[in-house]
Design a binder for these strands. Structure first.
Lengths: 269, 269
DNA sequence: ATAGGGCCTCCCGCAAGGGGAGAGTCAACG
DNA sequence: CGTTGACTCTCCCCTTGCGGGAGGCCCTAT
């Protein structure tokens, strides 16, 4: 017979834990001294303790452990128990996997936003953009409505999004209330989804300007880039693009004064 | 201004949760009526509530949420916070993955044991065993020591184990104290590991007998199978094999009277 | 006799709320 | 103006699986 301290050293379960297991009826001492209340364990309890440890290491709830130990005679019950527990673990695992994926997306997004902030010159530049596969939702109305389109794409294509959201603007002139535009996300996989157009978007030479500040002040940057285009005598190819390098994130709305938006206007060569 | 019930419907956070968040200082009402203690929230709190929801959905601890909201000005801090949180989630995920793998192994083992119990005839049979890839630890001493070898293989090769443990017995005659044997596990991948020999084990025609009962009684079945071999005039090929169809499991020691052990003796053709 | 360690019970704490009791408040309806 | 039903308040206990500590009893050795 072992005292609780000795038994604790043998099994690796803390004294507190052993008392708790006694209270819960999971692992009862072989005998308890009436006078002193001292708990004593014998050798057969070592095996029981090992079983409990094994099950707890598998994160089986203590109540279930107790039940397993009670109906231990029939090994078939245990199998079904374990299968149910596996289901539970699997569910947790799926949830954690999704959380990790979300975190990865958010972190990547933040990192890119930070890099974009460092690289931005806030001057008109000429560059070549690659063609890329996009998923888009064409909309009419106010630009402020475009969030709906982005979230629709996010819900349907979440796993395949591979870049910054962008807006294609089909109007030749600025319209406030009845604009014609398309909310787009670069995607890595060509899937067919109702209401969402997945297709390649052609690249080419373009003039580009990164705008720092809230969307209401985009007009200032448009003026700057259009002035540049006019001086150079370039001919524009519709639609014009806005790439949201840094905007309201998935968690924080952020500070609009720090939003970064790249205006891209493709030109004919 | 919204009452707590209205705000609850707007944000999807329960009234209880809102009161709790107030108590924890995570989301304070815009004002509280001195007389009645009623909490009132304004529109700006909706955004805060959304942020909290987003972070809680990512299982960020409430204390961290509070800290994030306090130091919300600097978005860089948030990024590091999220990276740390990702680490934590990753650790949990790894643990869960290991638990799931263990559960899978145990469940599969139990299922196979059950099937083996149903299929066993307890008569000597002749059959052909396939060759299979094994990981083995050669040992000298008592058979009861073989558990060490199996657990060593389990620790090193856990992921690749693809079948029942088996023992190769190199002695020509029965030895008690100084037996020469090898604890083996079928594995799916040929890896090199110190102290463990991974190699293919040749198959072939063999006589086989499934033994039901504790290992101490194996002698009875050995007598039976050797008698059969002698009557048939077969010539045996060393080593002899014991396959542990059902023995002490990873959780339960089980009932030795229900242990199933298959004795396989390969014969020359 | 006393000192030191071991053991006992009882209570509080953790994370993130849920459930409910008992009492006070608000808004609408007759 | 009174009442009623819905709403809200605080306070307390519950969850899981223990850990920490207080205050007190027990055992053995010197």
């Amino acid at each position: 017979m072992y005292s609780i301290g000795e038994f604790s050293k043998i099994t690796g379960l803390s004294v507190k834990t052993l008392r708790f297991y006694h209270e819960q009826g999971v692992l009862k001492p072989t005998c308890v001294d009436d006078q002193t209340g001292y708990r004593y364990y014998d050798d057969t309890k070592i095996e029981t303790a090992r079983v409990i440890r094994a099950l707890r290491d598998l994160e089986v709830p203590l109540d279930d452990v107790a039940e397993i130990l009670r109906s231990h005679e029939d090994e078939g019950d245990v199998l079904e128990f374990l299968e149910r527990h596996r289901q539970a673990m699997e569910a947790k695992l799926r949830q954690l996997t999704m959380i990790r994926a979300s975190l990865d997306r958010i972190i990547l997004q933040q990192r890119e936003a930070r890099r974009a902030m460092q690289n931005a010159t806030f001057e008109v530049q000429e560059k070549v953009v690659d063609s890329l596969l996009i998923a888009g939702v064409r909309m009419q109305g106010r630009y402020s409505e475009c969030g709906k389109g982005f979230s629709q794409i996010g819900r349907r294509m979440g796993r395949y999004i591979s870049g910054k959201p962008l807006l294609l603007i089909y109007d030749a002139e600025y319209k406030e209330d009845d604009a014609d535009f398309e909310a787009c996300m670069p995607v890595s996989k060509e899937t067919t989804t109702e209401g969402i157009s997945v297709r390649p978007l052609a690249g080419g030479r373009c003039v580009s300007l990164v705008h720092l500040g809230p969307y209401e002040e985009l007009g200032r940057s448009y003026a700057k880039i259009l002035d540049y285009v006019k001086r150079k005598g370039y001919k524009l190819r519709s639609p014009c693009r806005e790439v949201y390098l840094k905007g309201p994130g998935m968690i924080f709305k952020g500070n609009p004064k720090k939003y970064l938006t790249e205006i891209q206007m493709l030109i004919e060569e």
